[in-house]
């Protein structure tokens, strides 16, 4: 972890309340998909933790939804604005130790849980693996990043709760046609639980309200099979065998 000044290089609306922001600055230590950054927003006391969608050595992209004053402020930033950022944070997805499992794996993302899964898919494609990707949304007009996956050579399966695009239902409705060995998931807790219930094994990205984001305050503790873990520092990615559901 380090505090860095990152410059807003690009800010693009993707839907009515979801934005993609590219930040310029040192990024060579991000190393794994699924990690996050914690951004100071002027006028707000706590930082805003947002997962990294993709990165290279010199810049990273985050995709966030406006849910309150802080994210609204972020969405109104001008290009060239310099932001105080703590990064990189969290553990990230690990595909190095999966062996052949990774070749029969599925990536699932729900809503604003989709962005980090793009980084994961990109890493897998760079390693010569072509995973199945299932992206779930409430409605067709909430769909984000499908074209980004297509540019990687992956045709994502889309599900919508209201059936306005793709398969009507949840990401798990699109998982039933094939027996996957391994699942990666990021999205709302009920979605994670549903994927967890049908996947033999996998890695799951959790979300929690945080204060520090780097393991000091114990604000985001989660009970796991192997003890109390901090979502920010020990996670946000947890393995299937360590998850203890509270829902």
């Amino acid at each position: 972890m380090e505090r860095r000044i990152m410059e807003v290089a690009e800010l693009t609306p993707l839907t009515k309340d979801v934005y993609s922001m590219t930040l310029k600055g040192e990024c060579s230590d991000i190393e794994r998909p699924g990690r996050f950054i914690n951004i100071t927003v002027p006028g707000f006391y706590l930082r805003r933790p947002i997962s990294i969608s993709s990165w290279n050595e010199k810049e990273l992209t985050i995709v966030f939804r406006v849910v309150g004053g802080g994210t609204a402020e972020l969405a109104a930033m001008e290009e060239g604005t310099k932001l105080d950022v703590l990064m990189p944070l969290g553990n990230g997805f690990d595909i190095s130790s999966l062996g052949d499992y990774v070749r029969n794996s599925v990536i699932t993302g729900g809503g604003i849980g989709v962005p980090p899964m793009y980084g994961l898919a990109k890493e897998m494609v760079e390693k010569g693996i072509s995973p199945d990707v299932i992206l779930g949304f409430n409605t067709a007009d909430e769909i984000i990043m499908a074209d980004d996956f297509r540019e990687l050579g992956i045709e994502p399966v889309i599900t919508t709760v209201d059936g306005s695009a793709g398969i009507k239902g949840f990401v798990t409705d699109a998982m039933k046609n094939k027996a996957y060995d391994y699942a990666f998931a990021c999205g709302p807790a009920p979605m994670l639980k549903a994927v967890y219930d049908i996947a033999p094994d996998g890695q799951f990205s959790f979300e929690a309200r945080m204060a520090c984001g780097f393991g000091a305050c114990m604000g985001c503790t989660m009970e796991t099979v192997t003890g109390y873990k901090r979502v920010c520092k020990d996670g946000p990615i947890f393995y299937k065998e360590e998850i203890k559901w509270q829902i």
Binding site: Y45, L46, A208, R209, A211, C217, G219, C220, T221, M222
Partner: peptide, 16 residues
């Protein structure tokens, strides 16, 4: 139980 953190003007509430 979580949430344990609430942001405030110039501060935060914790219930760790």
């Amino acid at each position: 139980p979580l949430p344990r953190i609430a942001e405030c003007t110039a501060g935060l509430i914790n219930s760790v």
